[in-house]
Simulated scan of single mutants.
Amino acid sequence: MDFKLSSEQEMLVESVRSFVEKELLPYEEEVDRADTISPELSAQIRERALAAGFYAFNMPEEVGGGGLDYLSQALIERELSKCSWALHVFVARPSKILMACRGQQIEDYLLPCVRGEKIDCFALTEPGAGSDANSIKTRAVRDGDDFLLNGAKHFISHAGHADFAIVFAVTDTYDYKGRQRNKVTAFLVDSDAPGLTIRRGPKCVSNRGYHTFEMFFDDCRVPANKVLGEVDKGWDVANAWLTAGRVMVAANCVGQAQRAMQAALQWSADRQQFGQAIGNYQGVSFKLADMATEIQAAELLTLHAAWKMDQGSMTDGDAGMAKLFASEVLGRVVDEAVQIYGGMGLMDEGPIERMWRNARIERIWEGTSEIQRHIISRELLRPLMN
């Protein structure tokens, strides 16, 4: 296997790295302390990302996106993640689910998102349905040419900035091995739709300035022509995106770990104790060796999963392994970085405590570590237990 990046990929990485250093990182501490990002700054990032050609890099070229392969997308995600989600989210990656748009939906939703004229959000999680997505309670009932939605969503990232949400609701049930399972439909719901209320959710310590929201549907009327995909086939449009998303989260984790590693390495060379740099002591230097080894293993596992996605051979287990390992490596790396910094690692004058806070969510969203282990083990056992 050829592990060398192409010259185009190397240039892409350098361009994104420069963009992050110039356009994002200078604002990170300010946004984190304020726990908000101004409309002016978010618009500035969006405009400069569009000008640099990074906007919608995950979307196919035929709809105006970057048309990049998954490996290149993972490389970009790795570099963008070296800054908080509160900022790099505005280098938008519209939900790939929008490729299921048909007819007028393409002009109203898909193309405006690719051009930076509209922002989408993904509304699946509910108070009683996190890891068990199939247990969602939000329902959509046919009413003439419309559907009436009733229910609630929470932990919906970026909904406060979004022009519309991709909402998943139960439209029917069926029997599966003696149990009732839900048939789910995806809907394109405008943020100003009558019967929809959006409010800020609980404050999160990770990625301050990047907020989650609650959404409440009270006889929210959605025209039938805003069904995304087919009625009762919502999981068909969701699953491909969810699986690919785990690989990109893994790439995010690798980038964060690399940043924490670099900070810890510099501190180990500069910090003097007992007359010499602390990096000279095995108690510190061995930590650095373990951190570097684990980060490289996580990166190789992640890029291999992205490569397999490009070949059309990636399984759910491959994506699960990448997400599981990279997120847990990140947790260990930032924890060791705090230890290397000592007391200063927990002070908000420096970036390490922010990296430590931000890293914790990665083992939860896009499928917890426990869910990833379930996916991986189920895939391993399936051929032996049929």
Rank of each mutant, 00 (worst) to 15 (best):
C253P: 02
W365E: 03
R93Y: 08
L148M: 12
Q282R: 14
I295F: 00
G178V: 06
H374W: 09
P351M: 10
S81E: 05
P383H: 02
E29P: 02
A74T: 11
I97M: 15
V338S: 09
D236Q: 15
E294V: 00
E47F: 03
I198F: 07
R357D: 06
W85N: 13
I37N: 10
D236H: 06
Q311L: 14
K4W: 06
P60R: 04
A244M: 01
E23V: 05
R181L: 08
S285M: 05
N386A: 13
D348V: 12
V63Q: 03
L196M: 14
S327V: 03
A56H: 06
D348E: 15
F122E: 12
M59W: 02
L12H: 06
I278R: 01
S95Q: 12
R259W: 12
A165M: 14
T125A: 14
E230K: 13
L384C: 10
S327M: 03
F213Q: 00
D190C: 12
R179N: 12
E299Q: 09
L50S: 05
K226M: 11
T197R: 15
I119S: 03
V63T: 03
R373T: 04
D163M: 02
R93P: 06
K233V: 01
K203L: 04
R363N: 00
S131A: 14
K137T: 14
G320D: 03
Q9Y: 00
M309Y: 04
V231D: 01
L149I: 15
M248K: 05
K96Q: 07
D348T: 05
W85P: 08
P351N: 11
F213D: 12
E14V: 08
A129N: 00
V329A: 04
S84W: 07
G201C: 10
Q256E: 06
T171R: 01
N225A: 09
V333N: 09
S81V: 04
C101G: 01
F155S: 14
R332Y: 13
I136N: 11
E353V: 15
D219K: 15
L25P: 11
R382T: 04
A240P: 09
L242K: 00
G130N: 08
E299D: 02
A169D: 03
V205Y: 12
I340L: 02
S377R: 07
F155E: 13
